[in-house]
Design a protein around this nucleic acid. Sequence first.
DNA 1: TTATAAAAAGATACGTAAGTCTTTTTATAT
DNA 2: ATATAAAAAGACTTACGTATCTTTTTATAA
Lengths: 144, 144
Amino acid sequence: MLGKTTEYAIRALVYIYIQNIKGERPGFKEIAKMIDSPEQFTGKVLQNLTRANIVSSMKGRGGGFFFNEPANPITLFKVIEAIEGKEYFLKCGFGLKRCDTNNPCPLHDDYAPVRDSFFKMVNEKTIQSLAYKINKHEATLNRL
Amino acid sequence: MLGKTTEYAIRALVYIYIQNIKGERPGFKEIAKMIDSPEQFTGKVLQNLTRANIVSSMKGRGGGFFFNEPANPITLFKVIEAIEGKEYFLKCGFGLKRCDTNNPCPLHDDYAPVRDSFFKMVNEKTIQSLAYKINKHEATLNRL
DNA sequence: TTATAAAAAGATACGTAAGTCTTTTTATAT
DNA sequence: ATATAAAAAGACTTACGTATCTTTTTATAA
């Protein structure tokens, strides 16, 4: 459902968060290696996330990526919104320009609940909660 | 979630079915006009659906598109599978190459139910059931 | 048997996502 | 000050989804 770019973004942010807990500030080359993504492209994605104020960065020796407010959790929705665009969860599943309960497409009544449950999920899950699962060894960040 | 091509395909098939009930066999130009899609591209999409044995066609004067077994309902899944590919509902939401209950990504437990409910929905809904809703005036095919 | 109307087919173009390469800027350590 | 290590930036390439244009094939009607 999500594009590769968004998947790289989420995995990269989770890895950055895990490293930050350990007091580290990883660079994009290390990140790309650890999440199994193309190196330079991951750099570009992180550049965009930095511009969107989702993560922070420091240039120069000893620099890298980090969260300056780790207490403030980042929902997956925020990441999706930044990369896929604001409209991502608003589109009609049948492709109509306008579609709502009062003027539905023939798929609306069945599609809307699915889309809304996806929306709910990405608003509940955060970079932090995913990192927590990994640190508890309940899930893995990659499959190399 | 679905690509434009799949949306055109579903809308086109619904329109063809509705016209078939009336004893008509529409051509791609008429179809494109009625579902508000690009004319030539819709022709290509229908060509692919014909090759995939989802719909039938006749060349020459009086030709057009039709279902040769209208009693056998076509699920949306079948259309999605033909256009987006077999893997569409199998992909990991986090982007991992392999991901299942035994070896999950940190999103798996929450993503899988959403993906499965989408899968269930597209297996229940058919071109015929969507057409029925439109014929009952409970939904519209376009929004011109 | 000829004109016509339709889908099929092939070539090409456009737009955006995905990815690479090179240069520039910035901070730090020496 | 200078070398070094890092992100930022810009130009470019590739792949694919989306779309158009032209020609060919096929069936029907006249």
